[in-house]
Design a protein around this nucleic acid. Sequence first.
DNA 1: CATTTATTAGTAATAGTTATCGTTACTTGT
DNA 2: ACAAGTAACGATAACTATTACTAATAAATG
Lengths: 132, 132
Amino acid sequence: MPKRTRQKEAILRVLKSTTSHPTADWIYSDVRKEIPNISLGTVYRNLKLLWQSGEISEMDFSGTFSRFDGNPDNHYHFRCERCGRVFDVDEPVNKETDDRVAQKTGFKIFYHRLEFRGLCRECQESREVRTK
Amino acid sequence: MPKRTRQKEAILRVLKSTTSHPTADWIYSDVRKEIPNISLGTVYRNLKLLWQSGEISEMDFSGTFSRFDGNPDNHYHFRCERCGRVFDVDEPVNKETDDRVAQKTGFKIFYHRLEFRGLCRECQESREVRTK
DNA sequence: CATTTATTAGTAATAGTTATCGTTACTTGT
DNA sequence: ACAAGTAACGATAACTATTACTAATAAATG
């Protein structure tokens, strides 16, 4: 059973108080204002714990390494959360949404990335807790 | 002016001959069957060159570090390709597409990630070549 | 064929993240 | 309230993906 600690609460509070999608390092230096001797490892550990319990979400999916695609045209992907494999999804790219969002926000939008997440056919039998 | 080298051609050939979205390391070991003493740095350098010339695309966007989001509910993001900042996008999440793709593919789909890419308002003035 | 210069192999360095480990402090049961 | 059990801590080392550096090599050009 997880424990509620000062460090975890501070990290969660920092994360809930901003919309800037901070990096682990940014969170680290912000929390240090309150807990000056907190360790960077503690920040990473708690971010993972908070993510596992569903209290936060992580972007820049799938961690450490890049994957490359011989097809340079914009298309969509499916990623299996269990085995990590990536598949192409044959679904037409919807450009109208780009225009509508650009209109609403004032951003100039070149394209978008869409990735579906779930379990591939092979992995659907034996579901497990998500680990990373 | 870029040169066509045996290494670059081999890397491109490997990448065009698979749909498995390989990692740099996987590409490295596959190309080594043909050029045993190729360097891993060469693979990375050429992947970047091929990406810059638009011949391939890269996934797992934006490189090295993760960003975290205090809001665990599924929502969309916009990422500025110049300054790297990430903004929330207030757009309803479309669950029907998940169902349609699941039907077509046999995957079990939990959710999807959608990220728009372009230039934020501040960066729209001085556009530049994309560097990474 | 000689010159120019991008690219190479090899290796060292960097950066983000994770693992380890002895110590601390939250939680639970008595 | 106190003791026991154990999750979490801080500090640091290790790991992994990627990039930078350098002298040597090999495409391209005229």
